[in-house]
Simulated assay, not measured.
Amino acid sequence: MDDLLSDALRQLLEDQCTPQLVRAVEAGQSPGELWAQIEESGFADAMVPEEQGGAGLGLSDVFPLFALCGSYAVPVPLAHTMLARALLANAGVARPQGSIAIATSSGMAARVSFGAVADWVLTGVNGATVLLPVAEANAERDVFPLDATLRWTEAAVARAQRIPGTHDLEALQACTAAAQLSGALMNTFNRTLQYANERQQFGRPIGKFQAIQHQLSVMAEHTFAARMAAQIGCHSAMATPDRLRVAVAKSRTCEAAIEVAALAHSIHGAIGFTAEYDLQLYTRRLHAWRQAAGSESYWQEVLGEELVDRRNGLALDLIRATTDIHQGD
Rank of each mutant, 00 (worst) to 15 (best):
D309K: 13
R95Q: 12
Q300G: 11
H268F: 12
A156I: 01
P145C: 09
E14H: 12
N197D: 14
P164N: 11
Q213C: 04
A148T: 02
V112I: 01
A8K: 15
V112N: 03
L316I: 12
A84G: 09
D309L: 11
L216C: 14
A226W: 03
D142W: 07
V74R: 11
I232S: 02
A84Y: 09
R151A: 05
Q161R: 07
R85K: 14
A171W: 01
R199M: 06
L131C: 06
V22T: 13
T81G: 05
T253C: 15
T274P: 02
L34A: 06
L4T: 15
L281A: 08
V246W: 02
E26L: 04
A264W: 03
G54N: 13
L169T: 10
G28R: 09
H167W: 14
K208M: 12
R10E: 15
N138C: 04
H235R: 06
G56W: 05
V93K: 05
N190V: 08
D278M: 03
G183K: 04
L172Q: 09
H214V: 01
L65K: 08
V76I: 13
Q52A: 15
I100V: 15
A24R: 12
G127R: 06
D147Y: 07
P19A: 09
L172P: 04
P205K: 00
R111A: 10
E40P: 01
A139N: 01
R290N: 13
H214F: 02
V157Y: 07
A174V: 04
L59E: 09
T192E: 06
Q231G: 11
Q97Y: 10
Q194M: 06
D142F: 05
